[in-house]
């Protein structure tokens, strides 16, 4: 873990709700090295998103600490970390292009330059014809691609993705995954990707961290050294998928038992 780009060190997080204190995460440790595509998978409510929010500086751990690129995280730092959320969260009054420019605008990048950067990003994403469209005129998949372009525009080393394809239909999900893989292989960013989907986990990641039911802990971490693109029917991938499902099934059953 030493020397990792992102270090999560014995982090715990509790929430106070009306029905009492909920322990979201307990003693979570995880290291992610530069250039990795690390997937976090686990049952609903296991604190995956909370963990991601803390790495992104949007939430603070109660115990333990998190550092990114050698510096402790104390708030969002868009020069190091860009985030993509499940809800694309596009600004409805901005065109696709203007949405992509948002982060650069906040950083004071001159208008002409940020326009150039945003346009260059839209091209490979198949969004060039839609640059002047508003989010309401775009499909769900296109919106999420704009949200990803908005994150990539910051050109950070690290991109956090919180179930970015969770709201899309399965076909679109698969295509978006292929497309994301291509971008990642070209840019070699460090990605932490939260998902519910075993398929996404096995086809995209260099590593998978499986989390337990609440309070979330890291149950196991698997390395996936296979080449890309991965044939989802290959025996290796099928076996891996079955193994992951075995682990997650156990936790999901616990999560369901506890919530009823």
């Amino acid at each position: 873990m030493a020397g990792a780009l992102i270090v999560v060190d014995r982090v715990s997080k509790r929430y106070t709700t009306r029905s009492g204190v909920v322990e979201a995460l307990r003693d979570v440790s995880l290291g992610v090295s530069e250039g990795e595509f690390c997937t976090i998978i686990g049952p609903s409510g296991c604190g995956k998103s909370t963990l991601l929010a803390m790495i992104g500086g949007l939430a603070t751990p109660d115990d333990g600490h998190i550092s990114v690129d050698g510096a402790a995280v104390d708030g969002p730092d868009p020069t190091r970390v860009a985030t993509v959320f499940q809800d694309p969260g596009l600004f409805p009054w901005r065109t696709a292009l203007e949405n992509v420019e948002f982060g650069l605008e906040l950083q004071g990048t001159p208008r002409a330059e940020r326009r150039r950067i945003a346009s260059d990003l839209l091209g490979p994403l198949g969004l060039r014809p839609f640059a002047a469209k508003y989010p309401r005129e775009l499909s769900g998949g296109m919106r999420q691609r704009v949200a990803i372009a908005r994150a990539l525009a910051l050109d950070t080393k690290i991109v956090l993705m919180d179930e970015p394809f969770g709201a899309l239909d399965e076909q679109t999900r698969v295509l978006m995954g292929e497309w994301l893989l291509e971008i990642w292989r070209r840019t070699r960013k460090t990605v932490i990707f939260v998902t519910h989907s075993l398929q996404e986990a096995v086809s995209l990641s260099t590593r998978v961290a499986v989390m337990t039911a609440r309070p979330g802990r890291v149950k196991l971490v698997l390395d996936l050294p296979m080449d890309y693109p991965r044939a989802i029917e290959s025996p290796e991938i099928v076996a891996l998928r079955a193994k992951l499902w075995g682990e997650i099934r156990e936790e999901s059953l616990r999560a369901i038992a506890e919530s009823t």
């Binding site: 992104g56 500086g57 949007l58 969002p76 730092d77 868009p78 020069t79 860009a82 985030t83 959320f85 969260g89 600004f91 948002f102 982060g103 906040l106 950083q107 908005r150 910051l154």
Partner: peptide
């Protein structure tokens, strides 16, 4: 949208 704005600094 407010969270997105925060995340983008």
């Amino acid at each position: 949208l407010v969270t997105v704005a925060r995340a983008f600094g």
